[in-house]
Write a protein that binds this DNA or RNA. Structure first.
Length: 797
DNA sequence: GCAAGGTC
């Protein structure tokens, strides 16, 4: 199920985005074809108890109530119960079965609240921004200028780093670096003051050290230190490693992980937990890996000599950490999947290995009353780093020194350096920031990152660094100057904190939704009022529509050339009429034989999809944007002979009445209007405007449509008089001659007398439902040929 | 065409 606005609010041009805050939201079946609702209700029939086994988080609780609704179970003491479990092992399942609880409605309501808030806020801001900027600038390289309480702060992090880099002022610094020679090796000593920004002062120290020429060993210390083995692997850590070490983006990494999961090689890859459940079968998993050519012997050693108890980690109560389930080799998986699988295995073995132990040696020196030191590192026990070698201690062996000994300085360097700006944010750093601020979840973090890339707000550069684009920077700087809250991570925490009140039963669902929506509505209207401040940034960055693009084809209204703007979304702009006409996306557009559309005089264009196999079809830019008839979708024929060629919703048909012998202008119906006479499809005849008529693409029957008709569709009803199909005609509110303004009228297209309101049809008349009767009654042969005078009409309209 | 959250 998913939440969405009702039909009336789906039209971008007909809805003022601010009205969306008060718009009704309904829940729809996400995949109606799957008939999950019906299936659940059928399965539930005849049973007395319902036990819900869903994920133990708020979303899972929400789905519990969806299931309850679908099954039609009514709540009666003890009849609907919830199993709480976080891993699918025998012990956990039995434990959950023996400790059933009631599903938690408050938690489910909190999810409903979040859905409604996210939907309204996201869609309202997105539509407003898109309409405002897309209608004004030509080279905005994004189809949609989206806003979202997760994606926008995600972009905010990238832009914040960009601004730090851009405003960074490098500074010079200096340091004193004495060198000594020991056992034939030169050794650099680090200054206790590290570095100073005053050259004169450092020069003074440099001079003092140089004059002294002897360092004294003040102390020699040795400390045994530990590098901890990692806790279990969760999703964000897998994604960070995938990005920083394997060069795989989060979206791709998740796709690969999902495939490994469905193929049975790894456990469920979406988890926040790093703690293994107490019931986890470590021996079983190690056993599964023991014959693996890459780390079979390592697993065997752990099995034989006893594995270390894993670190505690955190238990988010969702799923166990990600672990291998089956042994695999590179040949079985392919390169990228293998590398990811390899990491999962290495990490798992690492969690069961001993910690790494190493010795840190530190020698402190003194010269001219200044302190210097050097540090040496030596591994004592590699532990888990032998299976995760990239985490090994960077060994640095120091020669022997004795306290009190004096050594001659070889050389004293006066080091000069410059501070440098931080680098662009890496994907891995971004994931950490998102996790830290609660932006997105294990499953949605990759989606948000992908979103800001796809919308052209950032680009991924070498080393998986995220570099914001001019559009991304302008957006964030715009929010920063209008209402910084809009791009700060707090916007997400605010929503989370509010819905948590609902989840805990401390606040009423509808009050919280109203309160939060009210706040965002205020922010929205302030944003709308202040949009000029953001626009000033866009003006400096992008060029107005009138200055973009190249002249391509003639406008049918003013007959002047329009400009083709090729950047996404591709469109035509008429400078004189100040109108925008969108064209099919992601393909090449050129003029089509200098022919014009018989409907509106706009010059026809030829669209070619990319690639050698790319299909080509002609179209009229005006009709493409304003279908002459609702209910008959206007798409254009692929070619004169391509009745079967699929494009979009329907198949193409050449125009049969067009005055141009070579005119490609054709219309495709959605297939809802079947010809009453034969098995053909009724096609809108473009040259009949404004007195629209439909033509059958097979037998050329003619159907005249009444004035003001706005939408047509077939019913499954047949006329009782003549057996032909009945067409429903819907009227535009503006043009309907009827007093109630909305009544749907129905008429038989062949019998003159049938003309009734829907109410009359449903209650006052009966229609036969006998299939497509042929040759019976008056229907047969009553169609009009195109060369006849079709006097038949819906009289009375 | 739009959000974020799930999901094989």
């Amino acid at each position: 199920m998913f939440s969405d606005f009702t039909e009336a609010y789906k039209d971008w041009s007909a809805t003022d985005p601010i009205d969306l805050f008060d718009a009704p939201v309904r829940r729809m079946e996400a995949n109606p074809k799957a008939n999950i609702q019906r299936h659940l209700s059928q399965e539930a029939r005849g049973y007395t108890h319902l036990i819900l086994w869903l994920d133990c988080d708020r979303e899972g609780e929400n789905i519990c109530f969806e299931v309850i609704e679908c099954t039609g179970f009514y709540s009666k003491e003890g009849r609907i119960l919830r199993a709480r479990f976080s891993s699918v092992t025998k012990t956990d399942i039995l434990k959950a079965m023996n400790n059933l609880v009631e599903p938690n409605r408050d938690e489910a309501l909190a999810v409903d609240a979040r859905q409604e808030i996210d939907l309204k806020v996201g869609v309202a801001f997105t539509r407003f921004q898109t309409n405002f900027f897309q209608g004004k600038y030509g080279n905005l390289d994004s189809r949609v200028i989206s806003y979202g309480p997760c994606q926008t702060p995600t972009l905010g992090f990238c832009v914040q780093r960009y601004l730090q880099i851009n405003t960074f002022k490098p500074e010079k610094f200096w340091a004193v670096r004495p060198f000594i020679i020991r056992n034939g090796y030169e050794l650099k000593l680090d200054w206790e003051r590290n570095r100073l920004f005053d050259r004169d002062v450092v020069e003074m120290f440099h001079k003092l050290v140089e004059e002294d020429r002897m360092v004294e060993v003040v102390s020699v210390s040795e400390k045994k230190e530990t590098k901890n083995r990692p806790p279990g692997l969760n999703t964000v850590n897998l994604l960070k490693v995938a990005s920083s070490a394997l060069g795989l983006g989060p979206q791709l990494a998740m796709q690969i992980a999902e495939r490994l999961y469905t193929q049975g090689f790894i456990s469920y890859p979406r988890t926040e937990s790093t703690a293994y459940p107490s019931s986890f079968d470590f021996r079983g998993t190690l056993g599964a890996l023991k014959s693996n050519p890459a780390w079979g012997s390592y697993s065997q050693t752990l099995l034989a000599s006893g594995y270390a108890k894993p670190r505690l980690g955190t238990d988010a109560g969702d799923h166990p950490p990600i672990t291998p389930m089956l042994s695999a080799t590179e040949d079985m998986l392919g390169n990228d999947a293998w590398r990811l699988y390899q990491y999962v295995c290495q990490h798992f073995l690492g969690t069961l290995s001993p910690d790494c132990k190493f010795l840190r040696t530190r020698i402190d020196f003194s010269v001219a009353r200044e302190s210097f030191h050097c540090v040496g590192l030596r591994t004592i026990e590699a532990g888990f780093t032998s299976i995760m070698p990239w985490l090994a201690v960077n060994e640095n062996n120091l020669p022997q020194f004795t306290k009190g000994e004096k050594i001659e300085i070889q050389n004293v360097e006066l080091y000069e350096g410059t501070t440098s700006a931080p680098d662009y944010l890496t994907e891995s750093e971004l994931i950490s920031l998102m996790e830290k601020h609660g932006i997105g979840t294990d499953a949605s973090i990759p989606v948000h990152i992908n979103n800001i890339c796809e919308r052209n707000y950032v680009q991924v550069q070498a080393g998986r660094k995220l570099v914001p684009t001019a559009l991304g920077i302008s957006l964030i700087r715009g929010y920063q100057c209008i209402d910084p809250d809009l791009c700060l991570p707090d916007i997400r925490s605010f929503i989370e904190q509010q819905i948590t009140l609902v989840a805990k039963g401390e606040a009423d669902h509808s009050h919280v939704v109203q309160h939060v929506i009210q706040q965002f509505r205020r922010k929205f209207s302030y944003f709308v009022k202040q949009i000029d401040n953001m626009d000033a940034l866009f003006e400096a960055q992008f060029s107005p529509l009138s200055e973009s693009g190249r002249l391509l084809s003639k406008c049918g209204k003013c007959l002047r050339y329009m400009k083709y703007i090729s950047s996404q979304p591709a469109r035509l702009y008429c400078n004189t009429c100040e109108e925008v006409y969108y064209v099919p996306q992601k393909g090449a557009i050129k003029l089509y034989k200098e022919l014009s559309c018989p409907l509106d005089n706009f010059q026809l264009l030829l669209f070619s999809m990319p690639g050698p196999e790319g299909k080509t079809f002609p179209f009229c830019p005006y009709c493409y944007n304003s279908p002459p008839f609702e209910g008959v979708d206007v798409l254009y024929g692929l070619s004169k002979t391509s009745n079967s060629g699929k494009l979009g919703k329907g198949a193409g048909m050449p125009c049969s009445l067009c005055p141009h012998p070579t005119c490609p202008h054709s219309v495709v119906s959605q297939g809802v209007c079947a010809c009453p006479e034969c098995s053909g499809t009724l096609v809108l005849d473009p040259v009949s405007a404004p007195n629209w008529r439909l033509l059958c693409n097979m037998c050329n029957s003619v159907v005249l449509l009444p004035k003001g008709a706005h939408k047509i569709s077939t019913t499954q009803e047949r006329c009782s008089e003549c057996e032909s199909m009945i067409i429903e005609v819907d009227f535009n509110k503006k043009t309907t001659p009827l007093s109630d303004g909305t009544t749907l009228h129905v008429g038989c297209i062949l019998c003159d007398e049938l003309l009734h309101s829907l109410v009359e049809m449903k209650h006052g008349r009966s229609f036969s439902r006998r299939g497509r009767g042929r040759g019976r009654g008056r229907g047969r042969g009553r169609g009009f040929r195109k060369d006849e005078d079709p006097k038949m009409s819906f009289r009375g309209f």
